[in-house]
């Protein structure tokens, strides 16, 4: 599992390198638009490769560099997936439903995710959205949808 990230990094670097090389050459400048991104993509690939090599050398690894095992607990992973999912739903619904409805639903969902108490979560969600709405829309005149 710990080798997935370095491999993904190398692939992303290779894609960025290929894309950067495809940009048109500059006629008037010695530096092309793709030169700088190509250098960075090459740097990402080299570092990804070093990281990958590090995962194969697990014998004498007291060095912080290479003890790279991703140490994420299952509960944090599930919380992360849930929160990201909620955020994507919020981004999708923000323009359609408006601030109060979309953020209100998200606030209630997040409060419930932590407290597992329905009434407390609803009260929290309503209060949070009301406070933020009054501060930003009314006092600071942010044109919230």
């Amino acid at each position: 599992m710990e080798r997935v990230f370095p491999i993904a990094l190398i692939c992303a670097g290779a894609m960025a390198f290929y894309t950067a090389r495809s940009y048109p050459k500059s006629m008037f400048s010695p530096v092309d638009p793709g030169t700088f991104p190509s250098l960075l993509a090459a740097g990402v690939m080299v570092c990804g490769l070093l990281l990958l090599i590090g995962t194969f050398r697990k014998t004498a690894q007291p060095v912080a560099d290479e003890d790279a095992s991703a140490n994420m607990g299952m509960s944090e992973f599930m919380t992360g997936v849930a929160l990201i999912g909620v955020l994507i739903l919020l981004a999708l619904s923000f323009d359609v439903l408006g601030f109060i409805e979309s953020c209100g639903a998200v606030a209630v969902a997040l409060a419930y995710l932590q407290s597992r108490r329905i009434i407390a979560s609803i009260v929290t969600g309503v209060l949070v959205v009301a406070v933020v709405y009054v501060v930003f829309k009314t006092l600071l005149a942010v044109p919230l949808p």
Binding site: L87, C103, V106, A107, A111, A120, S121, L144
Partner: peptide, 13 residues
Amino acid sequence: YAIVPMILTVCVV
């Protein structure tokens, strides 16, 4: 459980 929704809502705004 009240802090997380508050921070997230402010971040979204």
